[in-house]
């Protein structure tokens, strides 16, 4: 048990390092896209450690408690994440719903802490984040409903094995419409443009993060990196057939995240009600269509 927990912590740490490096590389890629030199690839690490070294302010116990709950919840979620077929901390317990709902503890902690700062912009940011969540989560979960219904198992490892068993038939190919919906929802989850409404630095002064500086902000950055790791890994495991070894995982992970980031860097930002309208129009219709086709008619490529 202790060994498993240590492996879990290792996975969470690995996720942090991986996502932070890839985010740094992506900053460089976006820099090149804009004909700039771009920062060093390890710039994200420097940013986080700088924040941790500063002397910050606090607005009372809930401000700190929320941050601890946020980071704790996200680390706990990451500890369940499988990296490959057989590399995971807790075998059989990598249930899909754990990731969707345990990640919510972290989000709740962050929201609580942000509202606890007493800044109206923070509350507006939280409101927008929750509204965005309401938008992207439903189409995404309908697609996952289809996948779990087809595989008959909600364990991520089993879903991976199912895809690998039938001749590398990834769900991105087997359920093309659903895969597209999944990717759009992933953009929403990662808070990439055009769904970046809840950060919006020029509009609501970076939303929930408005009052943070120093170690609290650093911890929220770590939380943000790990949650991005969880979300992208979920997409890789659900739609791209998971990974049999770690290199395959790294390649798939890199491709998915970079693609999302590239799309983000050429987009503007939606208004918050446009986000909701968008998700409840096309992605939801597509998800339902895909589910009806796959479950009731059984037409799976």
């Amino acid at each position: 048990m202790i060994l498993n927990i240590l492996i879990g912590i290792g996975i969470a740490f690995f996720g942090f390092v991986l996502q932070t490096s890839i985010a740094g590389i992506n900053r460089k890629i976006v820099g090149r896209l804009q004909k700039r030199h771009g920062p060093r690839w390890y710039q994200e690490f420097i940013d986080i450690f700088k924040l941790l070294s500063k002397r910050s302010i606090t607005h009372g116990w809930i401000f700190d408690f929320g941050v601890i709950m946020a980071l704790g919840g996200i680390i706990a979620t990451a500890m369940f994440m499988p990296l490959t077929n057989n590399f995971l901390a807790f075998e059989n317990f990598d249930n899909f719903f754990i990731f969707v709902y345990l990640i919510a503890v972290g989000m709740l902690g962050m929201a609580m802490s942000a509202s606890g700062s007493g800044n109206p912009w923070a509350s507006i940011g939280v409101m927008r984040a929750l509204t965005t969540m309401l938008a992207y989560e439903v189409p995404f979960l309908i697609v996952v409903l289809t996948i779990i219904n087809l595989t008959g198992n909600s364990s991520l490892t089993e879903i991976m094995l199912y895809q690998q068993a039938s001749g590398n038939n990834w769900f991105l190919i087997a359920l093309p419409i659903g895969g597209l919906v999944g990717f759009i929802a992933l953009m929403g989850m990662l808070g990439k443009k055009p769904f970046e409404t809840y950060v919006a630095p020029a509009e609501i002064a970076s939303g929930p993060m408005v009052e943070y500086g120093g170690k609290q902000l650093g911890m929220l950055f770590i939380m943000n990196e790990i949650s991005a790791f969880i979300e992208v890994s979920l997409f890789v495991h659900l739609f791209l057939g998971g990974a049999t070894n770690i290199f395959e995982f790294l390649i798939k992970y890199f491709v998915v995240y970079t693609l999302a980031n590239l799309i983000s860097s050429v987009n503007g930002r939606f208004k918050i009600d446009q986000v909701v309208k968008f998700f409840y129009k096309w992605p939801l219709i597509m998800a339902v269509t895909q589910a009806v086709i796959a479950i009731y008619f059984g037409w799976v490529i």
Binding site: H37, P201, M209, V210, G213
Partner: peptide, 22 residues
């Protein structure tokens, strides 16, 4: 800040609030 001189290569960037800034 933008392509011509690119402040970001020094690791600098604009921030929204005084709490976050150095």
């Amino acid at each position: 800040m933008t392509s011509a001189y690119d402040m970001e290569r020094l690791g600098m960037g604009p921030m929204a609030t005084p709490r976050q800034a150095d």
